[in-house]
């Protein structure tokens, strides 16, 4: 009974979201639509990192690397041949890539698959490490990807990056992928396979004793996370229409990590909430970087002030609410209905 109610409410929520997006497309300006798009992409990225870090306990800082792989692969597949010829000034694009073309959906999928393959490749040596060492190793991986992208001019166009990427990533694609990611990861972590991942996070020794092939499960989780990071990167490339290696610095991983930690490690609803709040705040807080005049006192604009505020906010979260907004809890329909009912009973009394 609960299950069918949950299903109906989920369908209703998706319909509501669809209606909102349809309304937004007709009534909001381009800047606000852009923010809505970024919300969707950031949620995809944060959900994938939460799967790796929050649910499996693998402290990974390699998200920017997977995003870069996804972004480059899918961009090269959707760039028209003429455009490719035009932007590759240093070296012409190597042969199969110069003529290869794919529809947007396939390109994004390919970006995700490529990222997942790299995830699989590095996970075998890297996942033998634990804790902080894993963080350093994956950070190194992301850096390697960036440096390679900077120097492999025949494929990535080096530091010039790719320009004029077709802007296919509209609000429907982004939210479509976002919902798919949420659905897939939610199903995964709520299944017994998800229980196994959480077991590895909670107590690896006990998980081994329970017959769980810990390394294999970690590799699966890491690769699935990498897949969605690649998808997020691919969508972002198409949304921004231009990418270059400088975009994929550690700061990009940091932004995603901030959403995951603020939302709660091991909470999908927390990630969604934090994804919305932080993405919106990141834009809204731009005013603090503008020059301010208070009376006769003039403060020049300080670029980067937003990040100072965010870093401080993160510091406060770690100090006073380490488990994030939601901790490991989830908002469920049954929970909401339960709260409403209790409130209703209280009002009646």
């Amino acid at each position: 009974m609960y299950e069918s109610r949950t299903k109906r409410l989920n369908v209703a929520a998706v319909a509501l979201l669809g209606f909102f997006l349809w309304w937004a497309q007709g009534n909001l300006d381009g800047y606000k639509i852009q923010i809505l798009n970024l919300v969707a992409i950031n949620i995809i990225l944060a959900l994938s990192l939460n799967l790796i870090y929050g649910f499996t306990g693998l402290f990974s800082l390699g998200h920017a690397g997977f995003m870069a792989i996804g972004a480059y692969v899918s961009s090269l597949l959707i760039l028209p041949a003429a455009q490719k010829e035009m932007i590759f000034l240093l070296e012409p694009l190597v042969w199969p890539l110069s003529v290869l073309q794919a529809p947007f959906f396939v390109a994004v999928l390919a970006g995700g698959v490529a990222a997942a393959l790299f995830g699989l490749l590095i996970s075998l040596p890297v996942l033998r490490l634990g804790g902080d060492y894993l963080g350093i190793a994956t950070l190194g991986f992301a850096e390697i990807v960036r440096v390679v992208a900077n120097n492999l001019s025949g494929i990535t166009n080096g530091a010039l990056g790719l320009k004029g990427i077709p802007n296919h990533a509209n609000i429907w694609w982004n939210y479509g992928w976002c919902l798919f990611t949420l659905y897939f990861i939610a199903r995964l972590v709520n299944s017994n396979f998800g229980n196994v991942l959480k077991a590895i996070r909670d107590d690896e020794t006990a998980a081994r004793a329970m017959g769980i092939d810990v390394l294999r499960c970690k590799v699966v989780s890491f690769s699935i996370g990498a897949f969605f990071a690649g998808v997020g990167g691919a969508l972002m490339a198409s949304l921004l229409t231009t990418i270059d290696p400088k975009m994929f610095l550690f700061l990009l991983t940091f932004n995603v990590l901030m959403i995951v930690v603020a939302g709660g490690l091991g909470s999908l609803s927390g990630t969604v909430i934090a994804g919305v709040v932080i993405t919106v705040l990141l834009e809204w807080l731009r005013f603090v970087e503008n020059p301010v005049t208070i009376g006769s006192f003039h403060i020049p604009g300080i670029p980067g002030m937003r990040m100072v505020i965010f870093s401080m906010a993160l510091l406060f979260i770690i100090l006073f609410r380490r488990e994030g907004i939601m901790g490991m809890r989830e908002i469920t329909w049954n929970g909401i209905i339960g709260v409403c009912r209790r409130k209703g009973e209280k009002d009646r009394d």
Partner: peptide, 12 residues
């Protein structure tokens, strides 16, 4: 349920 995984493995 986690203990059951080894005999009835659920693949991702």
């Amino acid at each position: 349920m986690i203990g059951c995984h080894v005999r009835t493995p659920l693949n991702w």
